[in-house]
């Protein structure tokens, strides 16, 4: 039986004011696929995620998450945003950040016993149980990244969105993250934004190039020169072979 698409964009266009960011995007991400969005800054990668999360509305076209409008389907998504957006001085512990994943709408009150168990479990899963009571702002870049991944996992999602999971992460943390994502892939659909094409090439089969339009490619070795030609950017290791396979999309350029 055909599995329902996890995320589907049909003829989607979006603009910030008069500046077009995405044009006529058709993209389907199947259930339990691991997909990476790559492309230059301002190309529309994060905008694609935000559209799927229902945080912004498309000017044209339709977005679906698990067959539902984003506002209804997004409860099934665990989202790790770029950590640069956070106030490091906000008085909040690592455990409290992760516990935000267990928020349930406007329901008043505090965490249930099950919520607490899930929070403990995901903290242990990302090896942060030792610093659970430390202030979030006191963590290193890599630890914060893992805390935000734990928060996304605390949702118990069907789909995981990771926006720049390797930014500010050292080589050791990157290797651990790689292993973690491989493990998660067995049970989740994973969509990530990354500039680190070497990291991506080792992890995903398909790469979605986003630069106002999208095109889908298998991830293989690619030279600097070819990437530079496509994006004018210093991406490292993705081969653009226009075999869309299970992931479908339009070529750009």
């Amino acid at each position: 039986m055909r599995k329902e698409a996890a995320v589907r964009f049909s003829g989607v266009s979006f603009a910030y004011g008069s500046t077009p960011v995405l044009e006529d995007v058709d993209l389907t991400i199947g259930a339990q696929q691991m997909v990476c969005l790559v492309g230059p800054n301002g190309g529309g990668k994060t905008t694609l995620l935000r559209l799927a999360l229902g945080l912004i509305e498309p000017r044209r076209g339709c977005v679906e998450v698990c067959g539902l409008p984003p506002a209804r389907g997004r409860r099934r998504i665990g989202y790790m945003p770029q950590q640069i957006d956070f106030d490091a001085q906000f008085p909040i512990t690592v455990r409290e950040v992760v516990a935000m994943g267990r928020l349930n709408g406007a329901r008043p009150g505090f965490l249930s016993r099950r919520d607490r168990a899930v929070v403990d479990e995901v903290l242990a899963e990302v090896d942060l149980d030792g610093v659970a009571r430390a202030p979030f702002g006191s963590l290193s870049g890599g630890q914060r990244q893992r805390a935000l991944i734990a928060r996304a996992l605390a949702v118990e999602p069907e789909i995981l969105f990771l926006d720049e999971p390797t930014a500010m992460v050292d080589a050791r943390s990157e290797a651990r993250l790689l292993a973690k994502l491989r493990d998660l892939h067995s049970r989740l659909t994973i969509v990530m934004v990354s500039h680190d094409a070497a990291f991506v090439a080792n992890l995903v089969e398909k790469v979605v190039c986003v630069n106002r339009r999208v095109s889908v490619h298998p991830a293989q070795e690619l030279t600097h020169g070819m990437i530079h030609e496509l994006y004018g950017d210093s991406m490292k290791a993705v081969l653009h072979d226009h075999d869309a396979g299970n992931v479908s999309g339009h070529r750009h350029g």
Binding site: L53, R74, R75, P81, D85, F86, G101, L103, P108, V155
Partner: peptide, 21 residues
Amino acid sequence: LFYPQLKAVCFDEDFARLRGV
């Protein structure tokens, strides 16, 4: 009563919205 929601909105509005707040 609404401490978790207030805290979430103060710390990360987008994530709070995703969780139905």
